[in-house]
Structure formats: C-alpha cells, structure tokens
C-alpha cells in the first residue's frame, strides 16, 4: 500500500481494492468514530465535571474521570469488537434480472472472544453474533435490474459494541460479480414453428406421452404404468412404456423471436429456453454469432442463458 493510497479518503467508506482473498480486519481496515451517543456522553462528562468543579467535590471529579476513562477505553473495545475477524467471499447464484443476487460472505472469528451484534451491510443491514472461534455465513442481497454482469459494492461490517459510544466499521470490497440472465418474458407464446428442421414433430402436447409399447411388469415400475386392460383379461401384468422424449427437436432462433426490441426478444428466448428445458424437449439455440446444436441438459440450458445474458 503506497502512502497515497493510505491517505485516500475513500478508504473510509469504500475500503481497499476489491479482492477474492480472505480479508483479515486489522488496524488498517478498521475505522472508529464516536456516535452521536458518544458525543452526548462527552457532554455528560463535562456536566459532571462542572458539578464537581462548582461543589469542589472530589468524588464527583473521580466519577467524571472514570467516565472519561471508560469513554476512552471503549475505543479500544470497539476496535476489539472487529479486529481479527476474517471475511471471505463465498458463492453466489445466478439470477434473472429483477431478482436479488445473494452474495455469500463467510465471517470467521478465530479469536477467543465473542463478537456481539455485528452489523453487516451491502444494501440492507443484517445483525449477527459470532461465538468465540466460530464461523458464520451471511447471504447479502443486491438487487438487479439489467441482464449481464452484476457487480456489488462494498460490504461494510460494523459494530457499536460494547457501549454504543463508538462505531467501529470496516469497508471491504470483494470481487462480487455474478451473471444476471434476462428476465423471462411473462407471455406464454408457443415455441416457434421451425422451418428448417424436419425432425420437428408435434411436441409439447404429445412429446412426452407417446405410447411406445408394453413390457412385462417389474417390481420397480410405478403402479400408474400398469396396463390394467391386459391385467383384466388375465394375460399377466404389463407396464406401459412411453417414449418420445428424445424424438422431438426444436430450434430457438433469435431471428424468429417476436418482440419490439432486443431486450424483449431476449426475454422471450429466455422464457422458451426455460420451458423447453423443463418439459425435456431437445432444443437448438441460435443467436447472431452464436449457435448450439439441439440438446437438453442443465449444462446446455446454462450455456444458452449465459449467451442470452451476455448478448
């Protein structure tokens, strides 16, 4: 840390450079200032000092000095309430635009003292108490509006423990960065008719329900699958077998997506991708300059959504 960085004012509220590494709170990162309650306490001390002065009362003097010392010492205690804590960036999950991204922060307390009433703030404040030599994991939410990479600001951890006269705080910047997918459209449009693909058959209504044939009942088959008609005829127990899951393919194409502007189209595509994934249709995906051959798997969906988010 250069001297210039050391005296940068923004350290007080934004903290040091963003990092991925665990951050140990030390004297460089912890700031302490009196709260307005602390200022009032100073006034209280002055008042008692005045009483002592007017009445020349030594015990009142002593009380005033005691309170002054307590005031002073609580600075150290404030520092102690944060010092040594280790903040570590945890995971976060991708969300759709409009939802809040939850960034996990792991706070560990390696020392033998309990940390009371820590306030940890990203957008909203949360309070927590960490026992001696213990850990806590907090999820801090940051709301999103637009698709693409979302970065979160500074995490501030603060405490007014023990007396509330001083507030110790430490701003920590992590590389909080998470991909935000486009918001899925609310319109339930049918999948686009695909001109290019002749493998496309009726889907959605039929796809998953195509009756394939019968086979001998096995103990692991569901009771719903039993073909009761043959059973009734006394021909034995047979199970119905369905197929067709893999027999349909659709193409989701940016060019064929309705919408006034790019965002609406992306939003609609996002919706289709999710729908297609949930009903198990194999789908191909194409954006200008990006194409994925038909598939149906979580990783396929993820790739599509990523492409949408970063388009």
């Amino acid at each position: 840390m250069t001297l210039k960085e050391r005296f940068r004012l923004s350290r007080f509220y934004r903290g040091e450079k963003a990092t991925d590494k665990p951050v140990i709170l030390n004297h460089r990162r912890i700031f302490i200032l009196p709260t307005h309650r602390g200022f009032n306490f100073a006034i209280l001390i002055a008042l008692i000092l005045l009483i002592a002065f007017v009445y020349n009362n030594n015990l009142a003097y002593l009380l005033a000095f005691l309170l002054a010392s307590i005031f002073f010492i609580s600075i150290l205690h404030s520092y102690k309430s944060l010092a040594g804590l280790i903040l570590e960036k945890g995971q976060s999950k991708r969300v759709f635009a409009g939802e809040a991204v939850g960034f996990k922060v792991n706070i560990s307390n390696p020392l033998d003292i309990e940390r009371y009433n820590l306030q940890i703030t990203l957008q909203d404040s949360k309070g927590l108490t960490i026992k001696a030599q213990n850990k806590a994991c907090m999820t801090l939410y940051s709301s999103t509006q637009r698709r693409g990479w979302h970065t979160a600001g500074t995490v501030t951890i603060s405490s007014t423990y023990p007396l509330g006269l001083f507030r110790a705080w430490s701003p920590v910047q992590f590389n909080f960065k998470e991909l935000v997918y486009p918001k899925p459209s609310k319109l339930e449009l049918p999948f686009p008719e695909n001109s290019s693909s002749e493998t496309l058959q009726g889907f959605r209504q039929k796809g998953a329900d195509d009756f394939y044939g019968l086979r001998e009942y096995q103990s692991s088959d569901s009771i719903k699958q039993i073909h009761w008609k043959t059973f009734a005829k006394g021909q034995g127990v047979f199970s119905k077998v369905y197929s067709g899951e893999s027999s349909t393919e659709i193409w989701l194409n940016y060019g064929h997506t309705p919408g006034h502007d790019t965002e609406q189209r992306l939003s609609q595509l996002c919706r289709w991708v999710l729908d297609a994934e949930s009903i198990g249709v194999r789908y191909g995906f194409s954006l200008p300059g990006f194409e994925l051959s038909p598939d149906n798997s979580l990783s396929h969906t993820k790739k599509c959504l990523e492409a949408l988010a970063l388009f």
């Binding site: 570590e88 995971q91 792991n106 850990k135 994991c137």
Partner: peptide, 11 residues
Amino acid sequence: ISFTRTSPDYH
C-alpha cells in the same frame, strides 16, 4: 468439512 461448505471452490 466446513471449508468445503464455505469455499467458493465447491458448489
């Protein structure tokens, strides 16, 4: 165990 639960290395 707690490391695997909190580290971003593991989902």
